[in-house]
Design a protein around this nucleic acid. Sequence first.
DNA 1: GTCTATATGGTGATAGAC
DNA 2: GTCTATCACCATATAGAC
Lengths: 209, 209
Amino acid sequence: MSSSSGKPASDSRLQILHAAAGCFMERGFHATSIDHVAHRLGATKGIVYHHYQSKMDLFFDVYRVGMTALLSAVSVARQGPGRGLASVRAMLEAHAMAMFEFHAFENVVAQGVQLHRFSAMTPSQRESFDELVASRDRLEQMYKEEVEMAQSAGTVRADLDVSIAVKTILGGVHWSVIWWRPEADEGLQARHQLAQKMVDVLLHGLEPR
Amino acid sequence: MSSSSGKPASDSRLQILHAAAGCFMERGFHATSIDHVAHRLGATKGIVYHHYQSKMDLFFDVYRVGMTALLSAVSVARQGPGRGLASVRAMLEAHAMAMFEFHAFENVVAQGVQLHRFSAMTPSQRESFDELVASRDRLEQMYKEEVEMAQSAGTVRADLDVSIAVKTILGGVHWSVIWWRPEADEGLQARHQLAQKMVDVLLHGLEPR
DNA sequence: GTCTATATGGTGATAGAC
DNA sequence: GTCTATCACCATATAGAC
């Protein structure tokens, strides 16, 4: 995982990243102070500013880790053996699993979607911001393409507005940052079962077949 | 629509409420200053503090309006003629329509779900907070009950984990605060079509029948 | 690398004139 | 009811010792 400046992530940077993700998740970006992050590290804010130029850069790095985890999980699943609807299913299951595994980071990703352009950004931050928006679009695009291919193959309904369908389905997966709690499903197996149940609802709906 | 203190909503209160909802949506609760709200009103913050004791009380009132709109829309739809799956469909369509109509307020509701208990609350604010949590649970409960009834009637699959299914489906509806933009679907009819397409995906999934 | 100041600015909330 | 002025506080970010 590389930072915005292309430097490899040092050990202390990773620790800061995890502390920040936890704080941002619990209190939100604006309500989190650098002192909060430092306190969670058991240190002072000098160390944070030694590794990150600003709070926003820190936020961007947390976002980047979360989004990279999603993109990576989904594209690996996409390249698996499945085709058509089976491929979409594999993507969604991997997606949901990543939502659980990187829970704090994905919570921050969800906040980042809402991040406005009001706060002043340096050119470098602006670049990071644009990159994040692009990565978000890329994720959605992967799903759209796969659903369209499945439509051609006849394993997904042809009468579907793909854009709306994908947005709605991804909403079902992403919203889990709101209600899912790590304490509830600790084992990998429990998480996988949950992911399967969620994806099952999204692919088949409520109606009996 | 009544405020937390039970007073009827005056005209100026309503204006403040709308301005606050817009600001909270655009910048988030913590990044919004009372000056921002006042500026959107074309006034100064004296007027805001004349009507609301604190920023958090203002937030709670915005949240309350948004949540009341959802509860009201969904429970009216529930009491309609439909039964079983048709009733769930009517609830979801009304739900989605309310998400659009009260877009700014529902955006704040989504933020409120994340609102932490860290910030100090007065006993009265604490009471509001608990009431909001309860209203959120009530909304989910309405869906769970209706889905279970539909299961008994055989119009919804019996093999479904109702709690997970409802959370996932509501995620699909609620996430629209993230991607939906008022400019895109101005007419009531365009909105209704969008709502129907979203609900169609949630009830039937992707697979052809 | 990590710490302790501290500069600097913004924000919630209040006081009090009109 | 609405304004101006102001207080008290907190948070970002920096400087500089060790």
